[in-house]
Simulated assay, not measured.
Amino acid sequence: MPRPVLIIQHVTHEGPGLLSDLLEKYSIPSLIVDLSRGEPYPDPRHYSAVITLGGPQSANDLNEVMRNELSTIEIILQENIPYLGICLGMQTLVKAAKGEVTTCSTKETGFFGPDGIPFTVDLTLQGIEDSLFNDLGKRLRVFQLHGETVALHNGISLLATGKFCKNQVVRVSNRAYGIQSHFELTPQLLLSWLSIDNDLRIMDHAQLIETFHDIHVDYKHTGTTILKNFLHVAEII
């Protein structure tokens, strides 16, 4: 049996979503650590991979919790521990890798951009060739929920781009990935976020639920495939 996967939560309501089903399917042990509850970040060297979820915090925060998280991700990169960061987890990866986290010129929220066109990400040439996107197309539908984005330096590979916030999926070293959007989304997560997240609370809930219902089969396939591909990269399955 492999060492457990470490799952880092920044806030309780942003859980692992589709990842939970995948870990159960393959009988992969895991430990969930909720930083918002004051739980300490364990030594990542005791785990087969680290998956960091989203949250309302900023990678630019100066508090002790965020400083500790960034220094721990530096260890993850130094030790070549497989890492997957989602939303804030992507931004903390880039920050720890000496990139920048900045305010989005256009905040991305929900399934549609301000122009009414669905949010998508387009794989770059590096993304098309990367194992994270095996068995997927070059353009993927996404759900967004973020007000910050990242600026990259030469040591960070860009794997997918978006229309408003360009840098959507990145890779640092060989096995550390960051994804800005929420491929882990499930109907249960969406419903909980609608009542909690300030940006989603003011949107048309019926339209958000209907849209996700319409695309859910394809969206679940995409998210599950990406997460499964990451577990392959991490040599867990």
Rank of each mutant, 00 (worst) to 15 (best):
H146L: 11
V33W: 04
I73F: 07
L70H: 11
R37N: 10
P44G: 11
L93T: 04
L19E: 01
Y41N: 14
I86A: 05
D214P: 00
T224A: 12
G223I: 03
V169A: 13
I156E: 03
G137I: 11
T186E: 06
L84M: 14
L77T: 05
Y47N: 06
G178M: 01
E100Y: 13
L35E: 12
G38A: 02
A234M: 07
I209Y: 06
E108M: 14
M203F: 06
G54D: 11
M90R: 09
R141N: 10
M90H: 14
G137K: 09
S195E: 15
L200C: 12
R171W: 05
L158Q: 08
V121A: 06
I86E: 05
Y177L: 06
L18P: 02
G137S: 13
V101E: 09
P56W: 06
A96P: 09
G113S: 05
H232N: 15
G54Q: 08
T161P: 07
T72Q: 10
V33P: 03
Q57C: 11
Y177N: 06
I117D: 11
F164S: 09
T72S: 15
P44L: 08
G113P: 07
Q78A: 12
P114R: 04
E79R: 13
M1A: 12
Q188W: 08
T92H: 09
T72C: 13
V5D: 07
N134H: 05
Y41V: 15
G178V: 04
D135N: 15
I128P: 00
L191M: 13
F143I: 12
I237G: 04
E210W: 04
F112G: 09
L191K: 15
L191C: 09
N174V: 02
M1T: 13
D115C: 03
G89H: 05
D34A: 10
N167A: 03
I81S: 03
S173R: 09
V5G: 00
Q9C: 02
L70D: 06
A176I: 01
M1R: 05
S36E: 06
I209L: 15
E148L: 07
F112K: 10
E69V: 10
M203K: 15
F119C: 07
Q180S: 11
P187V: 14
Q188F: 06
L88W: 07
T211S: 12
T225A: 04
K138F: 08
S157I: 00
T161A: 07
G15Y: 10
L231F: 07
F230L: 02
S20E: 12
